[in-house]
C-alpha cells in the first residue's frame, strides 16, 4: 500500500477548476516531484492534502488516502492530529511563512508540544536539537531569535526544523527553494534529502525546476492546467519523456550546455501559456501541442498506464508507444 495516494482529486474555485482529476501516489520514504508551470495547480494540490485550502476553494471529488485512511473523510479535530505529526508542510516564501512576532524557538516548540507530551523546557531542548539538525550554527543562542534576524536560507531551515519536528511520514515541500539563491537552494535541498534518509520520510517536492527534479527526486509527476499528464521514474523520464508537454520542457533545456545550472531554463519556453487552456474541450495542451490531432480537441485523454510505473495522458503518444524508437523521436 502506498503511503499517500491521491485519487481523482478535483478542486474548484468559484468560476474555475484548479485541479482536475489528479491521481498520483507516493511510497514511504520516496521523493516524488510534482512539476508544472506557475498556476497549474501544484499548491492547490498540496493544500488539499493538508486540508488547508483557501476558504473559497472546494474539493469537488476525489479521495486522499494516507496509509489507506481517507483524509477528506476525517473530522476537523482528527485532521489536526494528522497535521504536523504525520504530514507537514513547507511553504514557498520563507520571508512570510514564519510569524514575525514570535521567536523561532517558540514556533518550533509549539508543534512539538502540540503532538507530544513534553514540558516547556524539554520542548525547548528539542527545538535546540532540531536547529542543530538543520545546521543552524549556535543553535542554543539562535533559538531566541526572531525571523527578521535570519536570512532567507536560515528561515527555510527553521521551517524544515519545524516540519520534521514530530517525524512526519510525509513532508510536502511547496517550492521550498524558489525564493532562494542558487547556492542556498542546493544546500537546502541537500539538507532535505539528508533528513529524508535519516528520518525515513517521504517527500512531495513541488517545483518548476527540472534541474532540482533530476538531482533530488525518485519519481516525477508532470502537471498541466490542473491535470497530471505524465508520471515516471526519474531515469526513464529524462531518457525519454513521453507527453509532448514533458518533451517540450526537456527540449527547452537539453539543447543548452549540460554543465550550466538547470534552473535558468524554465518551462515557459514552450510557446503559448497555461491560460490558453481555459474553458476548452479536450486535451488542455492541444493548443500548444506540436503533434495535436483533431481527436485531441474532442475528449480529455485519460492517464494510461504503460507498465513500469509509467503513465501518460496523451493518445497520440500512447498509440505510438509500441514503437521502440519513441525515445529517439523527440523533435
Amino acid at each position: 500500500m502506498p503511503l499517500l495516494s491521491v485519487d481523482g482529486l478535483s478542486v474548484a474555485f468559484p468560476g474555475h477548476a484548479a485541479v482536475r482529476e489528479a491521481s498520483f501516489s507516493l511510497a514511504a520514504g520516496e521523493t516524488l516531484a510534482l512539476v508544472g508551470e506557475s498556476g497549474c495547480g501544484k499548491s492547490v494540490t498540496a493544500f488539499s492534502v493538508m486540508r488547508l485550502l483557501p476558504p473559497n476553494a472546494r474539493v469537488v471529488s476525489g479521495r486522499i488516502l494516507l496509509e489507506g485512511a481517507d483524509l477528506l473523510a476525517l473530522s476537523e479535530s482528527e485532521m489536526r492530529e494528522v497535521r504536523g505529526a504525520q504530514v507537514s508542510l513547507i511553504q514557498q516564501e520563507p520571508m512570510t511563512s514564519l510569524n514575525p512576532v514570535l521567536s523561532i524557538g517558540l514556533q518550533i516548540a509549539e508543534v512539538i508540544r502540540r503532538h507530544e507530551k513534553l514540558s516547556r523546557k524539554a520542548a525547548r531542548a528539542r527545538a535546540v536539537e532540531l536547529l542543530d539538525l538543520v545546521s543552524i550554527p549556535d543553535a542554543h543562542r539562535r533559538i531566541d531569535d526572531y525571523p527578521h534576524n535570519l536570512s532567507g536560507g536560515m528561515r527555510q531551515r527553521v521551517m524544515i526544523a519545524m516540519a520534521v519536528a514530530c517525524r512526519p511520514k510525509l513532508l510536502i515541500a511547496d517550492e521550498p527553494t524558489t525564493a532562494l539563491d542558487v547556492t542556498t537552494q542546493a544546500q537546502v535541498l541537500d539538507l532535505l534529502d539528508d533528513l529524508r534518509h535519516r528520518l525515513g520520510m517521504a517527500v512531495l517536492l513541488i517545483t518548476h525546476d527540472l534541474g532540482v527534479v533530476a538531482q533530488w527526486a525518485d519519481r516525477i509527476a508532470v502537471m498541466y492546467a490542473g491535470r497530471i499528464v505524465e508520471q515516471a521514474g526519474i531515469e526513464p523520464f529524462f531518457a525519454a519523456p513521453l507527453h509532448p508537454y514533458s518533451r517540450g520542457l526537456l527540449g527547452a533545456r537539453v539543447d543548452v550546455d549540460a554543465d550550466e545550472h538547470y534552473s535558468t531554463h524554465r518551462l515557459t519556453e514552450i510557446p503559448g501559456n497555461v491560460g490558453s487552456a481555459a474553458g476548452q474541450a479536450g486535451c488542455s495542451f492541444a493548443p500548444r501541442c506540436p503533434v495535436a490531432q483533431p481527436a485531441c480537441r474532442q475528449a480529455v485523454p485519460p492517464l494510461v498506464g504503460l507498465g513500469d510505473e509509467r503513465a501518460v495522458a496523451c493518445p497520440v503518444t500512447v498509440s505510438s508507444h509500441s514503437s521502440p524508437l519513441l525515445g529517439g523521436e523527440a523533435r
Binding site: F47, G84, S97, N99, E110, H115, M162
Partner: peptide
Amino acid sequence: RQDFMRTAKAKGLHPLLIQLRHALRNALV
C-alpha cells in the same frame, strides 16, 4: 491571509490558539 497562518494551521494547532497567539499578536501592533 498571511502565509504564517497556514504554517500555524499546518502544525495542527487549535484554531483558538492560532487566533490568540498568531493572529492577535500581529493585529495588536
